[in-house]
Nucleic acid binder design. Structure first.
Length: 574
RNA sequence: CGGGGCGUGGCGCAGUCGGUAGCGCGCGACGUUUGGGACGUUGAGGUCGCAGGUUCGAAUCCUGUCGCCCCGACCA
C-alpha cells in the first residue's frame, strides 16, 4: 500500500474537545472522527485495528470451540419484556411502519436465548459456546473520552450454555483463559479483578482492566497475593478490636455541643478540632420505600452496592431532606444514632471499634461528642458497608495492604445461571429424563473501547506505538526524497517483497519533506520504520522500532527484508 | 439530570463602549527546497450553531433553543 493513495487525514493541531491522550492521538493520527456525542466513524486505519482485534479474538475463540454467529440488531419488544428489560434506561426504542416496537441491541442475552430455546432439546447438545462481534447501542447518560464510552460501539459478546453449574463453571474459566490470551497477544498490560455484576447477574464475575491514569474505574490491588478488585466490589475486612485502655473502658461522658450550621464532616471536624475519622456519619437511605439509617466512619465513603446487597433492596437511594427530618427529627447534617428509633440501624464494621466519637444529635445545630456504642446506642447489625481504599488490608491475604490504581474496563465475564433461561423457557431434557433450565454465562469485550485502551497503554509524546499484532500496518518505508529514482526503486522492491510475505506494509511515496513523513510515521505508530535516504549511496537503509528511537541501525539493502522480519518477530514477542 | 465551559473558513484561535470578519496551520497553482511538521508569490474558502428580539445598523446586546466538552449522578 502507498501512503499517497491511502486515506490518512492526520492533524497538526489537536481538536479542542479531546482531552485524553488516546482521544487526541486517534483523532490526530486519522483513526477516528466524531459524528455526534458518543458516535464515531472509524477511518481506514482505525478500522484495520478494529479488524485486527476481531481477528485475535476470533482465533482465541476457535481455540475453545466457541463459534461465531450474527444476531439481529433489531430486538422485538416482546423478547425484552420476557426478561423485564424493555424499559432499561439505556435502551434505544423505535417503531416500524406498523407501529411494532423494537429496541436497538444493547446486549444480546435475549436474542441468543431465543435461538437456543428453539434449537436445544437434549443434554447431548450441551455445552454450546457462541459469540458475535457487532455494534451495540446504549443511550449513555454521558459519553466520554473519545471512544472509551460511546453510545454506539463495537463489542464482542459471547454466551455459554451448559447442562449444570459445574459445566457453567468450566465454560466460565475457559473464557477467562481465552481473555488472558487475547490481551497478552496484543501486548496489553491488564489486571483481572473481582467486580460487581450489576444487574446482569450477581453470581461470579470477573473484570479485565487496563491500568491507566485516565481509567473510569478504581482498582484495588494486592501485588503480593496477585489479587485485585474493582473498588465498588472490594470487600473490607472487619478491623482488629482496639486494645483495652489501661484505665477501665476509657469512655468519657456523653456531651452535647452546639454546632450551629455545621453540617458536613469537614465543618464539624474543623469546628471541634477533631480528625474526620473520629466522627461517625449517619446516612439515611430509602430501601424499597423503607428508610434505614447507616453509620460509617467520618472519613469513609458508604458503598451503595454493598448496602443494596446487604438489604437485598431493588431500589435504593439517599433520603431527601423531608424524609431525613421525619426519621431523625433534625435537618440534614445533624442525624445521629443516639436516641434514634423506629428505623433499622446498620453500622459498618469499622464503627464497632470506635470509642468516644462524634455524631449528630438529631437536633438542629448540635452534635454529641464522646459517643460510645452500647452505652449510648446499639446498632441493629454490623456489616461491610464502606468503600475500600488504598491501605486497607487485602481481603485474601490480610498480612498485605492494598494499593489503588485507575483502570479502563475492557472485558467482563459473568456467570448467569438460569436467570435468562428460566425467564425465557430455555430448557432441555437432562440425562435423567428431567427438564432443566440451561445454565448460562455471558462474556463481553469492548472492541472499540479496546482501541482507546491500547493507545492509552502504549504511546509517547510523538504518537501511538502499536504492537504488531494489532497495528494497522507493520512497516512503513519512508522515501526521504521521492525524486531520487534509485531510492524509489529500492523502496518499491522492498515494499513488494514484504507484501509478498503477507506483511502489511506502507510505502510513504508522498512528495513531502522528510520531516513531515517522520512525524506522520511516529504519529500513526507503525511498529517498524524503514528509511531509504542518504545511506542508499553506500547501499544501506535505516531500520528502527517505533518504540525505541535508539534501536535505529543501518543495514545493507540486501539484508533489509530479513532484518525487518526478525525485528517484527522480536516486537511480537516482547 | 445537577454543576462548569465552549460554539466564528477543514483544524487551532483572535475579534464586547454595536458600524458589515481576521490570524496561524491546512488546501489549490507556480517556483525554489528535500533526513524531523521548508520558503516565496498567488488563489480559493465563513448565512459568525439556530430562531426570535432591540437598533438606522448585531459575531458583539437581550430572550429562547440546539449542539459539543469536562466534573458529578448514572453506566444491563
Amino acid at each position: 500500500m502507498r501512503v499517497s493513495q491511502y486515506f490518512i487525514p492526520t492533524l497538526r493541531d489537536v481538536p479542542a474537545d479531546a482531552e485524553l491522550p488516546s482521544h487526541k492521538l486517534l483523532l490526530r493520527a486519522g483513526f477516528i472522527r466524531q459524528q455526534a456525542a458518543g458516535v464515531y466513524a472509524y477511518l481506514p486505519l482505525g478500522w484495520r485495528v478494529i479488524r485486527n482485534v476481531e481477528q485475535v479474538i476470533r482465533s482465541e475463540m476457535d481455540a475453545i470451540a466457541c463459534q461465531e454467529l450474527r444476531l439481529p440488531t433489531l430486538t422485538p419488544r416482546e423478547m425484552l419484556e420476557e426478561t423485564g428489560r424493555w424499559d432499561v434506561p439505556v435502551v434505544y426504542h423505535l417503531q416500524d411502519r406498523r407501529k411494532a416496537d423494537f429496541a436497538l441491541g444493547f446486549t444480546h442475552e435475549e436474542p441468543i436465548t431465543e435461538v437456543i430455546r428453539h434449537s436445544v432439546r437434549s443434554w447431548r447438545q450441551l455445552p454450546t459456546l457462541l459469540y458475535q462481534q457487532q455494534t451495540k447501542f446504549r443511550d449513555e447518560p454521558r459519553p466520554r473520552g473519545g471512544v472509551i464510552r460511546t453510545r454506539e460501539f463495537i463489542m464482542f459478546d459471547a454466551y455459554s450454555f451448559d447442562r449444570d453449574e459445574e459445566g457453567m463453571d468450566v465454560s466460565f474459566w475457559k473464557f477467562a483463559q481465552a481473555y488472558r490470551n487475547v490481551f497478552r497477544r496484543m501486548g496489553l498490560p491488564f489486571v483481572e479483578a473481582e467486580a460487581d455484576g450489576g444487574d446482569i447477574g450477581d453470581l461470579d464475575n470477573r473484570e479485565f482492566l487496563v491500568l491507566t491514569e485516565s481509567g473510569e474505574d478504581t482498582v484495588l490491588r494486592c501485588e503480593e497475593a496477585n489479587w485485585a478488585a474493582n473498588a465498588e466490589a472490594c470487600a473490607c475486612l472487619p478491623p482488629e478490636p482496639l486494645p483495652a485502655p489501661a484505665n477501665g473502658n476509657g469512655q468519657k461522658p456523653l456531651e452535647l455541643v452546639s454546632t450551629p450550621g455545621m453540617r458536613t464532616i469537614e465543618e464539624v471536624a474543623g469546628m471541634l478540632g477533631a480528625a474526620p475519622e473520629h466522627l461517625v456519619k449517619t446516612l439515611v437511605y430509602v430501601a424499597d420505600g423503607t428508610p434505614v439509617a447507616v453509620l460509617v466512619r467520618g472519613d469513609r465513603e458508604l458503598n451503595e452496592i454493598k448496602l443494596r446487597r446487604h438489604l437485598k433492596a431493588k431500589n435504593l437511594f439517599l433520603a431527601d431532606e423531608a424524609t431525613v427530618e421525619k426519621v431523625t427529627g433534625a435537618p440534614r447534617g445533624f442525624a445521629g444514632p443516639v436516641g434514634l428509633s423506629g428505623v433499622r440501624l446498620l453500622a459498618d464494621y469499622e464503627v464497632a471499634v470506635m470509642r468516644n466519637f462524634i455524631t449528630g444529635a438529631n437536633q438542629a445545630d448540635a452534635h454529641y461528642v464522646h459517643v460510645n456504642i452500647d452505652r449510648d446506642f446499639a446498632p441493629d447489625e454490623y456489616a461491610d458497608l464502606r468503600v475500600a481504599v488504598a491501605g486497607d488490608r487485602c481481603p485474601v491475604a490480610p498480612e498485605y495492604t492494598l494499593t489503588e490504581a485507575r483502570g479502563i474496563e475492557v472485558g467482563h465475564i459473568f456467570k448467569l445461571g438460569t436467570k435468562y433461561s428460566a425467564a425465557m423457557g430455555a430448557t432441555f431434557n437432562a440425562e435423567d429424563g428431567s427438564t432443566k433450565a440451561v445454565q448460562m454465562g455471558c462474556y463481553g469485550i469492548g472492541n472499540s473501547r479496546l482501541l482507546a485502551a491500547l493507545v492509552e497503554a502504549s504511546h509517547d509524546d510523538d504518537g501511538i506505538v502499536w504492537h504488531p499484532e494489532i497495528a494497522p500496518f507493520h512497516v512503513v518505508i519512508v522515501l526521504a526524497n521521492v525524486k531520487d529514482e534509485k531510492a524509489q526503486e529500492a523502496g518499491t522492491a522492498l515494499h513488494d517483497a514484504l507484501e509478498a510475505r503477507g506483511i502489511p506494509v506502507m510505502l510513504d511515496d508522498r512528495d513531502e519533506r522528510p520531516g513531515v513523513k517522520f512525524k506522520d510515521a511516529d504519529l500513526v505508530g507503525y511498529p517498524v520504520r524503514v528509511v531509504i535516504g542518504k545511506g542508499l549511496a553506500e547501499g544501506k537503509v535505516e531500520i528502527r522500532a517505533r518504540r525505541d528511537a535508539g534501536s535505529s541501525r543501518d543495514v545493507p539493502i540486501g539484508e533489509a527484508e530479513t532484518a525487518i522480519v526478525a525485528l517484527l518477530e522480536e516486537l511480537k514477542g516482547a
